[in-house]
Design a protein around this nucleic acid. Structure first.
Length: 553
DNA sequence: TGAAGTTTAA
């Protein structure tokens, strides 16, 4: 069973001590209320009633944050226990490694040293798990990588190498990244187009478009062929990383050496369309024709998207006519774009007409189309209709995906329909659809609003088990929410954790916490929080990049 | 993510 398959245990199963159980909501288990903090449908199993009024499952018993406890406040023995260690055999080594890495090393060498004599069974799976968990912490990831490299009998797989390259690129540690790539070249057989793709993507993502282009130009030196596929990746990367102009320049420079194909042009046209430069898009289309390629659905759909962005639906219709004249038919992607932007422009009736027209055209909706439809219905408050569409998907054999669930869960939470939201979370589990941070964040928000602290911490525990890390806004929400709900200690602990993770708490969040600590006369705790805030602000120096746009899950 | 579409706030 997948790891997240254990998230919610139903009451018929055996339950570990301290586990909460979310009941089968529709089955009417709602006959007792455990605590005023809990909604009526959320209950503990009979066998767990002892735990009902204790917060043991929330925090370790020693709460050293409390005033006058006389002990030092060490992160390690006063941590949030929602991240209870896993009991799976497979995860024991992961836990062991994480325990070492928790010490927040400041150099790669220190990490390598800390692992000296560490007895774990290294496997590719283990390495990749650690990389996933530490993808925002290059020192930990690279230190562990180096240590594993030195272990006799173990060799990293090409995939692990690529992941490491990507982590270094994401952290903008380009010198270290290049040294690793050079090693890979020297060792032989490790650099692939996938490696170079990651390198170019991370360079372009950091605004080093020229370096990305140079990498492509000397791609032979890595043992990779300089062909159309590689060129298209470069063009796409430059366009997606906000520089269609660099993409055009690079194209001009290499098009005589590397023969372009229709995709090369479509990539550039899409780049211009996203940048709202329609004249340039048209010009590229002409060039495409000169090269002997016909514009296709992809080409026209890009144009349509650009006009949709301008809400110029008359031009959208004109393009539809134009494309049909060229024997080119709109497909589900084209219809999704049109319907979605009509919906966003609050033209719901028109949006529905697109749906009808699409069906009349014999074009079948897919998951993304349904997701879009569900989204625009939720946006105007038509949750019932959205749910009907969800049912329709099932009937038509179209499987919902994470976006479907996230959209519906978020809408349910916005309308305080928590039961529905949690039912959807159960359904995800049933079809092995792994939730992400966006799945949980509306639920966490609602828990804060409704003062359901226990469910809140329970959900956090499950997020942690699935390696879903919290972001700045969730940390802020938790610090404020727990503070307002009388859980000042937990609030402080989350504040500490967010600073240690490299986030700078919002001033607003900080003020709320300090005010509450003052009100409670918790002077020592207040001083600690002030110290953490200073630490966070001092880390905001230019060279420090806690999280960039690629860091989200 | 990777030639086009879907989640994102008061």
């Amino acid at each position: 069973m997948a790891q997240y398959g254990r998230i919610f245990m139903v009451s018929s199963r055996s339950v570990r001590p301290n586990s909460l159980v979310l009941c089968n909501l529709s089955a009417g288990f709602c006959n007792f209320v455990d605590s005023p903090e809990l909604p009526h449908w959320f209950k503990y199993p009979e066998s767990q009633k002892n735990y009902v009024d204790s917060d043991d499952f929330v925090l370790l018993s020693k709460l050293e944050f409390l005033e006058d406890s006389g002990t030092s406040w060490k992160a390690d023995n006063c941590r949030l226990d929602y991240r209870r260690a896993s009991h799976d055999k497979d995860d024991i080594d992961v836990d062991k490694i994480c325990r070492i890495l928790k010490l927040n090393f400041t150099s790669v060498e220190a990490v390598v040293e800390a692992f000296d004599g560490c007895n774990v069974n290294i496997s590719e799976d283990l390495v990749n798990k650690i990389f996933k968990r530490y993808s925002n912490d290059w020192i930990s990831a690279f230190g562990f990588f180096m240590w594993a490299t030195m272990q006799v009998g173990y060799k990293h797989s090409p995939d692990s190498y690529d992941m490491m390259v990507d982590i270094l690129g994401k952290s903008k540690e380009f010198e270290v990244m290049w040294r690793l790539v050079d090693d890979m070249v020297r060792l032989g057989g490790l650099v692939s187009l996938a490696t170079i793709t990651k390198v170019m993507r991370r360079l372009a993502g950091a605004g080093r478009w020229g370096d990305a282009i140079t990498t492509f130009k000397r791609i032979d030196s890595f043992g990779i062929k300089k062909d159309t596929v590689a060129m298209n990746i470069l063009l796409d990367t430059l366009c997606k990383e906000r520089s269609v102009k660099h993409a055009r320049d690079a194209f001009m420079e290499v098009k005589n050496e590397v023969p372009p194909n229709a995709s090369s042009f479509n990539t550039l046209i899409h780049g211009w369309c996203k940048a709202q430069k329609l004249e340039e898009a048209r010009r590229t289309m002409e060039e495409m024709v000169e090269f002997g390629f016909h514009p296709c659905v992809v080409t026209y759909t890009s144009l349509i998207e650009a006009y949709c962005l301008e809400k110029n639906f008359r031009m959208v219709d004109k393009i539809l006519v134009e494309m049909r004249a060229h024997g080119c038919h709109p497909n589900v992607v084209t219809y999704t774009i049109i319907m979605h932007s009509l919906g966003k422009a609050k033209e719901i009736q028109e949006a529905f007409m697109v749906y009808e027209k699409m069906k009349a055209d014999g074009c079948t909706p897919d998951t993304s189309f349904y997701n879009s439809l569900i989204y625009i219905l939720c946006k105007v408050g038509r949750l019932r209709d959205a749910n009907d569409i969800y049912e329709e998907m099932h009937k038509n054999g179209i499987t919902p995906d994470i976006t479907t669930f996230n959209t519906l869960i978020s809408a349910a939470c916005n309308h305080s329909q928590v039961e529905n939201a949690l039912k959807l979370l159960f359904s995800m589990q049933e079809i092995y659809c792994k939730p992400n941070i966006k799945t949980y964040s509306p639920l966490l928000k609602l828990c804060c609003k409704m003062k359901w602290v226990k469910i809140l911490l329970y959900l956090l525990g499950h997020m942690f088990k699935q390696d879903i890390s919290l972001d700045l806004s969730i940390y802020g929400l938790l610090v404020r929410g727990l503070c307002r709900n009388g859980k000042i200690v937990q609030s402080c602990l989350f504040f500490e954790e967010m600073v240690l993770k490299g986030f700078t708490p919002q001033q607003h969040t900080y003020n709320i916490l300090i005010k509450e600590l003052q009100r409670m006369n918790m002077d020592r705790a207040k001083m600690k929080i002030q110290k953490y805030m200073l630490q966070a602000e001092s880390m905001k120096l230019p060279s420090f990049h806690p999280v960039d746009k690629h860091c989200s899950q």
